[in-house]
Nucleic acid binder design. Structure first.
Lengths: 141, 141
DNA sequence: TAAATAGTTACACTTACTGTAACAATTATT
DNA sequence: AATAATTGTTACAGTAAGTGTAACTATTTA
């Protein structure tokens, strides 16, 4: 699953959970509703649990619930919860180039640049909340 | 090769070519200098040729030359020349969800969002030229 | 204690990536 | 015209990564 597909899946699940509030929804129902495999979804949801975005309960009538108000839950924290690798990732483990050589300096340069871009993207994501997404898609025909 | 690694390789090659101006450099020399496989490098360079960023000449003393002044050559056009897939890519080929359902609407939403982010990234890349990169890395110890 | 659920692990399958080599096409030089 | 050097392209085996699914374990409620 690519970074973006994972984020999209997580948000779909969160929107579904948010719409069902305050009743907890189990992974099977959520998975069926948004069209993904339940086991995979649980993997994603478990990461959201670890990052205090949703809470889970076991047993009958158990399932998942939002842990924060949807107006306070933004994309960036969801993204960080499910992503290990960053969107722009430079492979610099390669066979070592000579220190202070042009290629070595360019590696550093790009690491810095991609990191800057990553920050920009995350800033953009910080101003998008689950609530704002729900409002936006509900106002569309 | 990831998008970012390919971009980084292309820029390393372009910097090397730029430094050797006006003598054309062949793929073997460039590859050795920046530490990549010559055949792979030729694949990248051939895309730059098709996009009028470098020109190539066959035969003895042949090789690659910048086709534009390094002050007029920016990252965005290099990126576009070598990338088919975009950095943020949402997989929406999946088993079709019902039209106008929440998941379907969210797919559209994310396609738009990722496209916006892509535009932002490319805008940022447009103000970075090969010349500015060369100056920056040469001023560093 | 039983049943339902989250959380995790495992695995076969497929797909994509990697590195390298080999081949085909092109052109300057002799 | 022949040759040699080079770009441009294809092929391929080997490896790594992603996918989908199932099965298992852990936890909790009733």
């Amino acid at each position: 699953m690519s970074a973006s597909t994972k984020l999209s899946t997580a948000v779909k699940a969160l929107c579904y959970i948010s719409n069902c509030y305050p009743e907890p929804k189990n992974s099977t129902d959520i998975a069926n509703s948004i069209g993904v495999n339940a086991s995979k979804l649980r993997k994603i949801l478990s990461m959201l649990v670890k990052n205090d975005i949703v809470e889970s309960s076991y047993g009958v009538k158990g399932g998942f619930l939002l842990k924060k108000d949807s107006s306070k839950l933004h994309l960036q924290e969801i993204y960080c919860a499910i992503e290990d690798r960053k969107a722009f990732y430079l492979d610099v483990r390669k066979k070592d180039v000579k220190k202070n050589s042009m290629p070595a300096k360019l590696n550093s340069y790009f690491l810095e640049l991609f990191s800057d871009i990553q920050v920009d993207i995350e800033e953009k994501m910080k101003i998008i909340t689950i609530k704002s997404i729900l409002e936006k898609i509900n106002n569309k025909k």
